[in-house]
Design a protein around this nucleic acid. Structure first.
Lengths: 146, 146
DNA sequence: CTAATGTCTCTAGCAACTAGAGGTTCAAGG
DNA sequence: CCTTGAACCTCTAGTTGCTAGAGACATTAG
């Protein structure tokens, strides 16, 4: 049996995140020691690694919840699993396409900044002007900052 | 003078978002009509279009706040503006690179899903296994979902 | 035995909005 | 002039996926 800290270190997930996953029902309620501390079986490490990897791949927690539910019923068709993965793939492709349009626009901005005064700055000017927009980025308004 | 609805329509920003921007100080407090409704000058439309475009380009609101502050002092050097844009460009390039790694992994998953039962499903298997990871995606853990 | 570290619960905060309740004001049609 | 309905107001709370902190208890190394 592992304590939460060992589990987190083994799976590469921070301790509060594990408690959060338990809270939202993504992990089952952990067993407890006599002193009320969470104890985990090895299998939980696999489940947690699964979650982590899926998160890294950009799957939202709701999709991961579905995948975990599906993986608990190994005799059914995997078409649903496939659909979730395909949806995710499409989302990633869309993000890449839009980010590449943004990249082009940013490059133009930086190239045109001649190092003068702000009054002449192309960056400011381009940001105030939509006419060079090469795509509809409106669906990019969230989740892009870093 | 424009009402908030007209302004929003003209700049492509939703009404509650405009009020939110005012609340956090990104837009100055609007003038009010006798009946307490917000009224905007045309110049606000430009400022709002600037914000919208910068958001579409992925600039966080804090960076936009800085840019707006800089654009109000047009006689200074634009090196700061340039730096903000370059930072943003780097962030976008990093995101693209990581998303392309993720795309490859997702494609492998989908290709290998032979349409059988979940017990044999490669998607589930790959998600449980980190060994094929081609990069450290750990900085991708937020902001990727769509 | 004690000190340090780990764990517990709980609340609050982050970005950047979005949604809803419940009430007021405005513009147009009859 | 009056009414209707859209647009506006404020306020609170919710979203996603965590992260940070407070204050208290548990465990472990020396």
């Amino acid at each position: 049996m592992l304590t939460i800290g060992k589990l987190g270190a083994a799976a590469g997930v921070k301790v509060p995140t594990i408690r959060y996953y338990e809270q939202i029902g993504l992990l089952p309620d952990a067993e407890r020691s006599s002193g009320n501390q969470r104890l985990y079986a090895r299998s939980t490490q696999d489940r947690l690694a699964f979650i982590r990897h899926a998160r890294e791949l950009g799957f939202p927690l709701e999709a991961i919840r579905d995948l975990l539910g599906l993986s608990d019923r190994p005799d059914q068709s995997c078409s649903e699993v496939d659909a979730i993965a395909r949806t995710q793939l499409q989302a990633v492709e869309g993000r890449i396409a839009r980010l590449q349009a943004l990249k082009g626009e940013l490059e133009r901005m930086v190239d045109q900044c001649a190092g003068g005064r702000i009054g002449d700055c192309r960056v400011i000017e381009v940001l105030g002007d939509h006419t060079h927009c090469s795509a509809d980025h409106s669906r990019d308004l969230h989740g892009v900052s870093e």
